[in-house]
Design a binder for these strands. Structure first.
Lengths: 332, 332
DNA sequence: TTGTAGGCGTTATCAT
DNA sequence: ATGATAACGCCTACAA
């Protein structure tokens, strides 16, 4: 960041004042034709570009928004980032991104940093353990609006863009029942994540809607690791009438489950069917795969988050601060 | 970005000058004990944090680097981004990221934008079609160093971090020969990408080293789409003695090839073995998969790019502006 | 030990 | 139609 041409240099060279040059370049109507031409020509010749840092400083804004995600290696969030970026860059905003790795301390440090960097707004997921929202509050008190994406706090006052989890889970479950499965199960995600509960509710709603409330059971694995999933599957398979239609909180849980079945209960492999949340790109190459996946539309979620944030950053009144993105059932 | 506490406000409240407060907070040794204590206490009470935008402006730098990649949805680049981010954030740098989608016009617009944003340095891949380096030159003339990551121009004057393609291809090919394959083939990538040629050279070197120069052939598919790959495989299978050990420019080409074999030549499925570039995370779930993959270590590549850039941004003389990252053969 | 003054590049306000 | 001036928040010679 060195010797960029400045207004001052142009003005000196032209023998006019700095403010004249500035106005000429900003299409101020009070500048004479002749002067404007001269200014514009020289600016072009010298490859003048305004110094954004100075401009942002002067205008007390940065045309930058912050984006906080758990992990950029996660396909879901990569696509969400992409969606945010698309809308942001179309509106001349640049995106400052950081990952929390689901560590709350790290998240708070990032929030501080973003405030210092002078972002005009923030899109954030929260870590599963976060209950104290004061770091976010601090931002909002400083006039920096925050949109929670995908994962959001319980407080309904928070602007948020989330998946319509219960509907998606309900549809997926209904789909499994329509395929003829008599016994259903849902492998839940971490209890502290709101999406876990919402998907469970959708699962149960589907059962009730079909008047089969007793045909399904919710199993709560200890965690998201392959081992946790294997224990869950083992428990389900040990039942007198084991479920054959299984909804999983995440698609990769279904993959782990399938791998386990193949190893331990190969004879059941073709009788059990799975549906999971997240539509992974490599699924098409798999021999044994879930019969369907819930596409969570992360790109759309990111784009909508950015649009909502744009509204909040402008002073136009916002119609709704809660946006729910429907999931799409993809049958493989 | 509003009402952050400023030095001026602190100074007024304390009845001292702005510079005194500034110095006290910057550990200037000429400030008295008593005054310093008072200043520090009030700063803490008021949650004072220096305004980064103002500071960057004043110091004519931004503590920000630009990162330009083709596509954030590509696993390879996601991991590279991660590597960059790790090193950057450890050194208090923030990363401004944009994607070109391999469109040269878009890339040039991004380069302009990054210059305006006042990045202190840049890490970039180039689009396959880029030959005109003047947009990059312009940055360097403005004192902004550029590191090319993964893909780089032919000009050896450019600082770059790339995969040691020929060695990796050579190792992979040797591995296939050692597994007993008599006829080898290499499915190449786009000719305009330097990596394609380098990997071809490595493939051929392996054959020569084993004195089997006539046992391998290079096939140039029309592109990277599944259809292109299928045509290539069809051509290879039509040969009187079709190759059984096949190296592919990308692992997903191998996956497309395997899918095709399974469909059209199921009887040959177990006689042909593949090795491809890129170690995909979901590979472990596949029934039929490449026997090995070349791990391109994108995270390391990103980290090394950032380290090199840090050197270039400091004024310490740089030992080497070319870094080659070795590939690792992962046997599945 | 502390304060004053000037400057970083830009824009806005108010004179001329 | 143009120019002078101040201001944004911070740092740093230099002066007191």
């Amino acid at each position: 960041m060195k010797k960029l041409v400045t207004l001052k240099e142009l003005s000196k060279e032209l023998g006019v004042s700095v403010s004249t040059v500035s106005k000429a370049l900003n299409n101020d109507s009070t500048i004479g034709h002749y002067t404007r031409e001269r200014v514009e020509r020289l600016a072009r010749d010298r490859h003048y570009v305004p110094n954004e840092v100075a401009r942002n400083f002067q205008q007390q804004r940065s045309l930058t928004i912050g984006l906080i995600v758990p992990n950029v290696l996660d396909q879901f969030f990569v696509q969400a980032i992409n969606g945010v970026d698309e809308v942001a860059s179309a509106r001349q905003y640049t995106v400052l991104m950081s990952q929390t790795l689901d560590d709350e301390r790290r998240a708070n440090a990032i929030l501080d940093q973003m405030r210092l960097d002078g972002v005009d707004g923030l899109i954030s997921t929260i870590t599963p353990t976060t209950t104290d929202l004061t770091p976010y509050r601090r931002l909002e008190k400083a006039g920096i609006p925050v949109v929670f994406m995908s994962r959001s706090p319980n407080d309904p006052a928070c602007a948020q863009v989330t998946l319509l989890n219960d509907d998606a889970a309900c549809n997926a479950t209904t789909f499994l029942m329509e395929r003829g499965h008599q016994r259903l199960a849902y492998l839940n995600g971490p209890p502290c994540v709101a999406a876990s509960q919402q998907r469970r509710i959708g699962f149960e709603r589907a059962l009730i809607e079909q008047h089969r409330a007793n045909d399904g059971l919710v199993y709560q694995p200890a965690g998201l690791t392959p081992t946790d999933t294997e224990q869950a599957i083992e428990a389900l398979m040990a039942l007198p009438e084991h479920p054959t239609g299984i909804l999983t909180f995440k698609t990769y849980m279904a993959l782990d489950a399938i791998a386990y079945l193949k190893r331990i209960y190969p004879e059941r492999l073709n009788t059990v069917e799975f549906v999971g949340f997240s539509n992974l790109p490599l699924l098409k190459h798999l021999a044994h795969k879930p019969v369907a996946s819930v596409e969570e539309n992360p790109g759309l979620m990111g784009a909508e988050s950015m649009r909502l944030l744009m509204q909040l950053m402008s002073d136009t009144p916002v119609t709704s601060t809660h946006i729910e993105i429907p999931g799409t059932l993809i049958v493989h």
